[in-house]
Design a protein around this nucleic acid. Sequence first.
DNA 1: TTGCGTGCAAAGGTTTTGCATGGCA
DNA 2: TGCCATGCAAAACCTTTGCACGCAA
Lengths: 146, 146
Amino acid sequence: MQKTAYKTKQQDLLFSYLREMQGKHFTAEEVRAHFEAKKLTIGIATIYRQLEKLVAEGKIQKYFIDEHSAACFEYAGENCNTNEKHFHLKCELCGRLIHLECDELEKLGEHVRTEHGFVINPLRTVFYGVCKDCLSEGKNEDCNED
Amino acid sequence: MQKTAYKTKQQDLLFSYLREMQGKHFTAEEVRAHFEAKKLTIGIATIYRQLEKLVAEGKIQKYFIDEHSAACFEYAGENCNTNEKHFHLKCELCGRLIHLECDELEKLGEHVRTEHGFVINPLRTVFYGVCKDCLSEGKNEDCNED
DNA sequence: TTGCGTGCAAAGGTTTTGCATGGCA
DNA sequence: TGCCATGCAAAACCTTTGCACGCAA
């Protein structure tokens, strides 16, 4: 089944970049730009293919933040493939993506599972809202009405 | 600022369809197809423009379900513009979108606000996971590894 | 040498935008 | 009549796919 036969330079480059980015999010395009800046060309198709593979292997996660913006990826860490229990908060105002590790969320997961029969996947779940900074800056008047 | 000057036939048609769809989700393309079936042509651009406007007005919500599939919209209801406290659960296996009204979720919202300084917007937040039916059908063996 | 992985370019799908026209006030 | 909203088509955007070539084993 597994046929990851050949190890290539691009795979190495990519993977070390991912580790470097531990705890941060990145898009396929950002990866490409990163290497371009280093005078290293990795085709965007290759990046997508590698990222897809790594997602399937559980080495990185993929997040859908906005429908129009590119997908975000994140290194899953060496050993915590599916142990990582953090959720993501996405600020609708400044666009920041925040990590949240919190027992309450695990409790909620329990509740939803036992009471509603639904098993939440934290890896794909994103909470939208308004972050601390934007709140304190009072940017949250109301909807932007241009 | 507001310049919703002209009321058009398309707006009426669209809005009555939305009300008809209360509690259900739909995509822009589904709306278009619905009217096409009735021999009424509404351009997809118009639909997107109207839906966007209605989202801004809080009359409908917009959900990002999958990155590749089209965005889902849902009528917000007559009076519960921002009172509606339900969240959405999206089953990653069968694709179903489930409404969830639950006090625990409100409590979680409280917690995240007070402890983490983040105000969650339930209208845009979607929980991904696996639903009751798919769980009982044992479809959740593990990741599809092709 | 074999055949996988790569890179380029083109295709795919959804959403947005430009522009001329039609319809509301 | 004035001007907004519409509709068509083209563009934009992210992502996937086809195909020939290069490179790993």
